[in-house]
C-alpha cells in the first residue's frame, strides 16, 4: 500500500502553478519563498515540450545558509488538451552542486509533476529530489488543489483559493510536513500566491513569463 501511495505521490508531484515548460520561445521566472526554504528558477522553452532551466535553492540556517544550484532540462512528457480541461506530466533532470549534506558536493536533481485543471478547479502534485554520491540530500513533495471563486475573462484578474500539502526532508533529518492555504491572483503574465501554513509559516510564490 505504501509503495502504491508513493507512486501516486510521485506521479502527482511537482507544481501546476509552475509549469517548467511553457510556450515556444518563452522565458519563465518563478519561485517560492518562506523562512524555511527559498527556491527560484528560470526556464527557457525552446519548444512547448522542452526547456532549459536553472534552479537556486537556499535554506536559511542559524549557523550558515545551505544552498544548492542546478542546470536542468525540462520535458513535457504528456499533455491532454480536452474540450474543457488540460492535463500535463512534466519531468526534469539536472546537474549542479549542493551543500545540503554539510559540505559542497556535485549533485543531481530530478523532478516529476502532474497537473490537471479546468477554469474552476485545479490539482497538482510534484516531487523534487536532489542527490549526491551518498544518496538523497533533499526531497520535496507537494500536493495542491485549488478552486476559482469566479470565472474571469482572458484579460481579467484571476483569483484562486488553493490548499497545499507539502513535505520537505533534508538529509539526516525527519521530514517536515505542513498544510498551507494560499490566495493566488494573476493578471496577464504576472502571478503571485500568498499563504500562511497552519504552523504559522508565511509562503510567497511568484511566476512571470515573457
Amino acid at each position: 500500500m505504501k509503495s502504491i501511495l508513493a507512486v501516486i505521490g510521485l506521479l502527482l508531484s511537482s507544481s501546476s502553478w509552475a509549469h517548467p515548460v511553457s510556450f515556444k520561445g518563452s522565458l519563465g521566472i518563478m519561485g517560492s519563498q518562506s523562512e524555511l526554504l527559498s527556491h527560484n528558477q528560470i526556464n527557457y522553452s525552446a519548444t512547448h515540450r522542452f526547456a532549459f532551466g536553472a534552479h537556486y535553492l537556499r535554506r536559511p540556517n542559524r549557523e550558515t545558509d545551505r544552498e544548492a544550484g542546478f542546470f536542468t532540462t525540462n520535458f513535457l512528457l504528456k499533455r491532454w488538451n480536452g474540450s474543457s480541461y488540460q492535463g500535463n506530466i512534466y519531468a526534469l533532470q539536472g546537474l549542479g552542486g549542493s551543500d545540503f549534506s554539510g559540505r559542497g558536493r556535485l549533485s543531481g536533481v530530478s523532478g516529476l509533476q502532474f497537473d490537471i485543471e479546468d477554469r474552476e478547479l485545479y490539482f497538482l502534485a510534484k516531487h523534487l529530489e536532489s542527490y549526491n554520491g551518498e544518496g538523497s540530500d533533499f526531497r520535496q513533495s507537494i500536493v495542491r488543489a485549488g478552486v476559482a471563486p469566479y470565472v474571469a475573462d482572458f484579460e481579467g484578474i484571476h483569483s484562486w483559493l488553493i490548499l497545499q500539502w507539502q513535505q520537505n526532508q533534508f538529509v539526516d533529518e525527519d521530514p517536515v510536513r505542513d498544510v498551507t492555504p494560499f490566495i493566488r491572483v494573476f493578471y496577464n503574465n504576472l502571478l503571485f500566491e500568498l499563504g500562511q501554513s497552519l504552523d504559522g509559516v508565511t509562503r510567497f510564490n511568484y511566476i512571470t513569463h515573457f
Binding site: N81, S83, Q86
Partner: peptide
C-alpha cells in the same frame, strides 16, 4: 482545444501579435 488557463494562453497573443499581418488578437476562454 485545451485553452483553459489565461496565464498559459499568453503565448498565443504574444506570438500572433509578433506576426506583421496581424492587427489585433482576442482570446475568448468561454
Amino acid at each position: 482545444k485545451g485553452m483553459v488557463c489565461a496565464f498559459c494562453a499568453q503565448g498565443i497573443t504574444k506570438n500572433f501579435k509578433s506576426e506583421k499581418e496581424v492587427e489585433d488578437v482576442k482570446v475568448d476562454l468561454d
